[in-house]
């Protein structure tokens, strides 16, 4: 690598934007809300970078993301989530086979619906682990809780999801 430097907000947008968007989409189930959250996070990153002290950048970023999400939830209390779109044109599928696409759409719709039924605390831990790909320690840093709490929430969240998904996986 040529050099190491503190990332700019453009760097953050380009490198983490997609992950933040996926985190937001899986938590809200709504592309518009997800886009709004990404914009809010990038705005906060832009403001916060000047006072950012080198450390765990991921922990810092996901804490901002999670706080922005929770602020949005508080602002629109108990707003009903929008149903998923009829088609998944915006989704990126790796397999082009029609049967696989149909199965994948159905599975992802069912999982998404089930995710939205999870308590928020469990949902965010499951999404950060299985969608974003953070470790328990990184999640613990992001949600400012002990690793044991993270482990418990992921376990219980997946267990609830499995019970919500009635048909065989």
């Amino acid at each position: 690598m040529a050099d190491e430097r503190t990332p700019t907000w453009e760097d953050v947008a380009r490198v983490y934007g997609r992950k933040i968007y996926n985190f937001a989409y899986r938590l809200t189930g709504n592309p518009d809300d997800a886009a709004d959250l990404v914009q809010e996070v990038l705005l906060r990153v832009r403001r916060g970078l000047s006072s950012y002290t080198p450390g765990s950048f991921d922990g810092w970023l996901w804490r901002i993301t999670r706080n922005a999400f929770l602020d949005g939830v508080r602002k629109q209390k108990r707003r009903p989530t929008s149903p998923l779109p009829d088609d998944d044109r915006h989704l990126a599928f790796s397999s082009p086979s029609p049967d696989e696409v149909l199965a994948s759409v159905r599975l992802s719709e069912d999982i998404q619906s089930a995710l939205l039924k999870l308590p928020l605390d469990f949902r965010e831990c499951v999404v950060l682990c299985d969608v974003v790909g953070l470790t328990y320690e990184e999640i613990a840093e992001a949600i400012a809780s002990p690793v044991g709490t993270v482990r418990s929430r992921i376990h219980r969240g997946r267990k609830m999801l499995r019970e919500l998904l009635t048909w065989p996986l």
Binding site: W9, E10, A13, R14, G17, R18, I20, Y21, N22, Y25, R26, P31, A35, V38, Q39, L42, D88, H90, L91, A92, F93, S94, S104, L107, S108, I111, Q112, V126, D130, V131, H155, R158, K159, L161, R162, L165, L169
Partner: peptide, 24 residues
């Protein structure tokens, strides 16, 4: 059951972020 659930969660497609949200 948990292994299946974990695998299913990880097959969720990774969505494209709308280009308008990115600087370049």
């Amino acid at each position: 059951r948990l292994k299946e659930m974990r695998a299913a969660l990880r097959t969720l497609p990774f969505l494209e972020i709308p280009e308008r949200l990115l600087p370049d």
